[in-house]
Each structure stands twice: as structure tokens, then as C-alpha cells.
């Protein structure tokens, strides 16, 4: 059937034309990769691998020290968070439910992000304001920390 012969032939021609279009690009890419690989001698490649290994060792060491520091800082800020939580509980009646919930979430987030300075500021705020002042002070605090 001429119709099916045409479609078969067109399929072959199209595939060959696609191959003819892309084959040089693929071959070029392969040649470039091979050239880049062979550009350095075996000694040079070994030296580069060694430099990479040294860098990895240093980075692993630094990452470990950072983790240790973070753990220490978290331990410290958790103690402050416990204190501020205590203050929040005693001051809960003087705050709106939204403010209390927001302060509680803020304390938890401060521990996660090790935001000591702002948590300390909240502690000072609870510590230095009396019953009437604490709610507006908390409102202002959260306006500033937004």
C-alpha cells in the first residue's frame, strides 16, 4: 500500500535526519569530555583527587565543630527558654490569648534558630513591666520583631 510505504519511508528519513543533526553534537560533546579528561596527566589527576580529599577532611572537621557549638548554644538557650516559658505562664492572664500563643511560638522558634538576643529581650520585657503594661509591651515587641 503506497500510503503505508510512504509513512515507513518518512519514518526512516526522519530518524536519519534527526541522527544526522544530533550525531555531530553528541560526538563533539564526547570528544570534549575526552579532551578534558586527557588534558591532565595521571599524576595531575591524582594530585587533584588528593586536594579534593584534603578539602573534604577539613570540611568534615569544621562541620563537626559547628555541630558541637550549635549543641552547646542550644543547651544554653533552652535554659533561657524554660525561664521565659515560666514567665509566660505567670503572665498569661495579663496577655491576650493570641499574644500568649504568639509568645510561646516565638520562644520555640528562638530555640531552633538560636536567636538568643531577642529571647533575652522578651525575658527583660516580662521582667520589667507590670500587669497593665505587659500586654502593650508584648504587642510592641512583636511589631518590632515582625
Amino acid at each position: 500500500m503506497p500510503q503505508s510505504l510512504f509513512s515507513e519511508l518518512s519514518l526512516i528519513y526522519v530518524s536519519f535526519s534527526v541522527l544526522a543533526l544530533y550525531a555531530p553534537a553528541v560526538l563533539g560533546a564526547l570528544a570534549l569530555a575526552f579532551f578534558l579528561y586527557r588534558r591532565h596527566s595521571r599524576l595531575e589527576r591524582r594530585r587533584q583527587k588528593h586536594a579534593r580529599l584534603r578539602r573534604d577532611i577539613a570540611q568534615r572537621g569544621q562541620a563537626r565543630r559547628k555541630r558541637l557549638l550549635l549543641a552547646s548554644q542550644r543547651g544554653n538557650i533552652r535554659e533561657l527558654a524554660r525561664l521565659v516559658h515560666g514567665q509566660l505562664k505567670t503572665r498569661q492572664r495579663e496577655l491576650t490569648p493570641y499574644q500568649a500563643q504568639r509568645a510561646s511560638a516565638f520562644i520555640e522558634r528562638a530555640v531552633v534558630t538560636v536567636d538568643f538576643d531577642r529571647l533575652y529581650a522578651l525575658h527583660v520585657l516580662f521582667d520589667s513591666n507590670d500587669a497593665q503594661q505587659v500586654s502593650p509591651a508584648v504587642e510592641t515587641f512583636f511589631e518590632h520583631t515582625r
Partner: peptide, 30 residues
């Protein structure tokens, strides 16, 4: 290449020990 391999292994070992020492010092500071 063999000599290089030996030298690099030694260097890596020294680097690991140095990192261990630094981490120990850091832990002491903490």
C-alpha cells in the same frame, strides 16, 4: 605514582589527626 600514593596517604592521615586535635581543643573551649 606509588611514592605519591604513600605521601598522600600520610598527608591525609596527618590532616585527619590535625582535625581531631582541633576538634578536641574546640570541645575543651566549649
Amino acid at each position: 605514582l606509588e611514592l605519591m600514593e604513600i605521601r598522600f596517604k600520610e598527608e591525609c592521615k596527618r590532616a585527619r589527626l590535625e582535625e581531631e586535635r582541633q576538634t578536641e581543643n574546640f570541645t575543651e573551649f566549649l
